[in-house]
């Protein structure tokens, strides 16, 4: 018996987010042969819809309304609630993103439903089981839900998207909703995200600590990130010293990240920082102090001054990538 499953797809700057494809793959597992329906909310998003089918959704619903241009809990809740009432799914999957983690909790609250947040692995053999980090990744727990509708949010970069199949015919249909009485009003959005985008979704992160020494000290890191198509992060030490914005902080307070490659520059490796990044797939440490704790979790280490090492990395990666 399959489970009819809704997947919330998200677009950012008119591009679908990778985590949405991952959520479809997660939805397939949870659905266990049941129908997987991707839902795309926004004010002008229908042109993006077919790709969701190419990544595995059985059909796609587009919900377009001027009130869905920016995320508000009320607007998105009302829209998705109407889709839920219309489709009566048994499971709903979202990315554990700014939108997904908020909206899933709102709707789970409204519908008195189970919600398993920030899932990194789904085991669909036997009883459906979800693995999620606790204590910011210092430990993991496996969870099950009991009965009724379940919401699941998945952490970006952990569940692999299905292969894209562009030959597939995709059924896309609009779903009409009525949205009223928004209690929160978005007056303005100030873009702060640097190139390379959001840290939680970045495949490559170049991160700086106290060793970066100043605001300007982040420049070589940004140059390396630009060459590798990565994002720049920081340790708490660097944020507390005002070298960068708190939105860059990785650690137990701050963001927990799991990129393919994490390059820690001038970061000593306090336990709070390690909690936020030690589940990255490959870790490189660059530090002057050979005794620094960061070397204990690093796959590769260079003992040296980041201001010497990082520009060299930029230079040789540039060369290597040009040859490729």
């Amino acid at each position: 018996m399959g489970r009819k499953t809704l997947v919330l797809a998200e677009a950012r700057e008119n591009q679908l987010r990778q985590v949405s494809y991952e959520a479809i793959a997660a939805g397939k597992k949870v659905a266990d042969g049941g129908e997987v329906i991707a839902v795309l909310l926004g004010d002008n998003v229908s042109s993006l819809a077919p790709v969701l089918g190419h990544y595995g959704a059985d059909r796609v619903l587009t919900v377009e309304d001027e009130n869905l241009k920016n995320y508000t809990p009320d607007g998105y809740k009302q829209a998705l609630k109407q889709v839920i009432d219309g489709e009566t799914p048994e499971a709903i999957i979202m990315g554990h993103t700014a939108i997904g983690k908020d909206l899933s909790a709102v709707l789970a609250g409204k519908l008195n439903s189970a919600l398993v947040s920030d899932v990194t692995e789904i085991d669909a053999e036997g009883d459906l089981t979800f693995t999620r980090p606790i204590y910011a990744g210092k430990a993991f727990e496996k969870k099950r839900f009991k009965e009724g509708l379940v919401f699941v949010t998945i952490r970006p970069n952990n569940i692999e998207a299905l292969e894209k199949d562009e030959s597939k015919d995709v059924s896309v249909s609009p779903f009409d909703v009525a949205i009223r009485d928004l209690r929160t009003i978005v007056k303005d959005i100030v873009k702060k995200t640097s190139s390379g985008g959001d840290l939680s979704e970045a495949k490559i992160i170049i991160s700086g600590g106290r060793g970066v020494k100043s605001k300007d000290g982040f420049e070589p890191l940004q140059e390396l990130a630009d060459v590798l198509g990565g994002a720049v992060g920081a340790s708490r030490g660097a944020c507390d010293a005002d070298y960068c914005d708190y939105s860059l902080q990785i650690g137990q307070t701050g963001k927990v990240v799991t990129p393919d490659l994490y390059i820690a520059c001038g970061i000593s490796g306090a336990i709070q920082h390690l909690a936020g990044m030690s589940n990255s797939k490959v870790i490189v440490a660059v530090n002057k102090d050979p005794e620094a704790n960061i070397f204990n979790v690093a796959d590769y280490g260079i003992v040296g001054d980041l201001f010497e090492v990082v520009p060299l990395l930029t230079k040789y990666f540039k060369e290597a990538l040009q040859e490729a």
Binding site: S113, K138, K142, K143, R144, F145, K146, V284, N296, Y300
Partner: peptide
């Protein structure tokens, strides 16, 4: 509405490789 079935620690990481030699060579090797 949910139950925890297991808690576990992440697997221990094997010791990494600290590179040696001339800095240019180290970086190229990395």
């Amino acid at each position: 509405l949910t139950e925890s079935v297991e808690v576990f620690l992440p697997p221990e990481k094997a010791a990494g490789k600290v590179l040696e030699g001339d800095m240019e060579d180290q970086v190229q090797e990395l």
